[in-house]
């Protein structure tokens, strides 16, 4: 029983490994391409990501009340 289980595990991992290789080598990584495009476009159009310009708090003394 233990032997069958561990063998199944090995097979599953091998399949996962193989599918990962196939994914990287054959399919176009759309999400990665979008991220790369965003970075390049922001540079070319000089768009600042919102995090790069933190808005100063107009009332630093005022405490936020819930």
């Amino acid at each position: 029983m233990q032997k069958i289980l561990s063998r199944t595990c090995v097979v599953l991992m091998a399949v996962s490994l193989l599918s990962a290789c196939v994914t990287i080598n054959i399919y176009f990584p759309a999400a990665a391409a979008e991220m790369a495009a965003d970075r390049i476009i922001d540079e070319v159009w000089q768009l600042q990501p919102p995090a790069a310009q933190p808005q100063p708090n107009p009332n630093p003394d005022k405490k936020v009340t819930p």
């Binding site: 991992m13 996962s16 490994l17 990962a20 290789c21 994914t23 990287i24 990584p29 999400a31 990665a32 391409a33 991220m35 790369a36």
Partner: peptide
């Protein structure tokens, strides 16, 4: 190894 390979989805 499979984790490393999966993580390389970068351009």
């Amino acid at each position: 190894l499979s984790c490393v390979v999966q993580a390389q989805g970068n351009l």
